[in-house]
Design a protein around this nucleic acid. Structure first.
Lengths: 241, 241
DNA sequence: GTCTATAGCTTGATAGAC
DNA sequence: GTCTATCAAGCTATAGAC
């Protein structure tokens, strides 16, 4: 392979969106060209991966010329990085706030933290964005799911943007389970992480496997089962013998 | 995308290996050409995915001419399917036998089945092949990990070859937890499946996240934690309220 | 900012000699 | 079975008019 590992240090060499007239400040955004491109790329990358998508296909789906992709994002790789970057901070900001709010509420109420409560705060914002954030968020979740499973791309990209929320999760679970060893907590997280990223892909495999009994798009159920399953898992793994 | 979903119905339109002289019957196989090609393809596909690998790269790594890949496997897709097929039956045969052996031993000993025992039989053969089966098995595990996360390719391929072992797992866990509802079992399996496939990728993410405290290649630990985590998860999710 | 046109290269696949 | 030679198509990226 001639391609190197994703760095995400700079989104692109593109001129970015500095001198842009703030037409619709924050409400009814009239779909800027660069956002249209990102949306199309997000959709296609999430389904076919980086190499499975061509610049031409993205341009066609976005309804713009291929040259514009290079104008905005420099290279195909710059486009991918920009797609990954766009929603990472929003998603993880939501998760960080949800965990902090849960911890603060528990302290205020004088109640101890529970693994289930921490896990729910860690996971719920993801499914909420996926379910109610629009199709773009659904595509983005699938993209994260695949990127996490990739041995080359998953490393740097995930580390950079997702580690802080993971450390916060582990910190709070340790408060809930004070006897837990650090290694136990990391291994338990590893199990939770696999379940979460697989769920974010919504591959439909569970639907087929269960003969329609379970739907991988039923995110309320996904959340409920994940909280109970992982909560018990953390407890079992972190319990002192 | 012009590519359709993987079917795996026929490995390729290739002439297969009918009239092949059985030089080294089953012992010291002298590395047949088609096996060399499969090994190289397995390695590269597992790292870069289907679209991230070219026929020429596979040929170069295998040390053969590109035309030979077409001779043996017809198309690039035929090559991918052949790679996926080659080890699927071996792996899942091992898992099926391990689960049956566990169940038989428990019955013979007059002991009840446990979720932990069933899960260990379900998972252990995978890590055993990955750890001791040679580099090809490691690559194959990574390939399965990525294929499972792919919304388009994961569906058909996984269903066809991996469903039988999953159904056997669920059947045995239901014997261990008789009060379990079918939907509960499928949802619990979903959580286990995510952890298992993420582990099969050995992406090294846990190593970095934990600062070296945990190693994703330490398959004994992976197995031990997964059995305890998922065992408790199944129990929690399947318990009657 | 957006377009046309195109350079320069790589791709999957095949035909045919040996 | 294996190789050489090659095709038609598709690719990323850029230059430059408007």
């Amino acid at each position: 392979m001639s391609e190197t590992v994703v760095t995400l240090k700079t989104a692109a060499k593109a001129p970015a969106r500095r001198g842009r007239p703030p037409k619709a400040a924050a409400a009814e955004r009239p779909a800027e060209t660069s956002e249209l491109i990102l949306d199309a790329a997000e959709d296609l990358f999430s389904k076919h991966g980086f190499y499975g998508v061509t610049i031409r296909e993205v341009a066609r789906e976005a309804g713009v010329d291929t040259a514009l992709l290079h104008y905005y994002f420099g290279t195909k790789r710059g486009l991918f990085d920009a797609v990954f970057l766009r929603r990472a901070e929003v998603m993880n900001g939501d998760r960080m706030r949800a965990m902090n709010a849960y911890a603060a509420a528990a302290v205020a109420a004088g109640e101890p933290l529970t693994p289930e409560g921490v896990i729910e705060a860690f996971v719920k914002p993801v499914f909420e964005l996926s379910a109610k954030g629009g199709p773009g968020w659904k595509h983005y979740c699938a993209l994260v799911s695949q990127t996490n499973a990739n041995p080359l791309w998953g490393g740097e990209a995930m580390t950079r943007y997702f580690d802080p929320v993971v450390y916060r999760l582990i910190e709070l679970v340790r408060q809930a389970l004070p006897e837990a060893e650090p290694a136990d907590l990391f291994w338990a997280y590893h199990n939770l992480s696999g379940a979460l990223t697989l769920s974010m892909g919504e591959t439909g495999r569970l639907d087929r496997l269960s003969g329609g009994l379970c739907r991988s798009g039923d995110l309320d159920s996904v959340l409920s089962y994940m909280v109970r399953f992982a909560g018990a898992g953390f407890r079992a793994v972190c319990a002192k013998p």
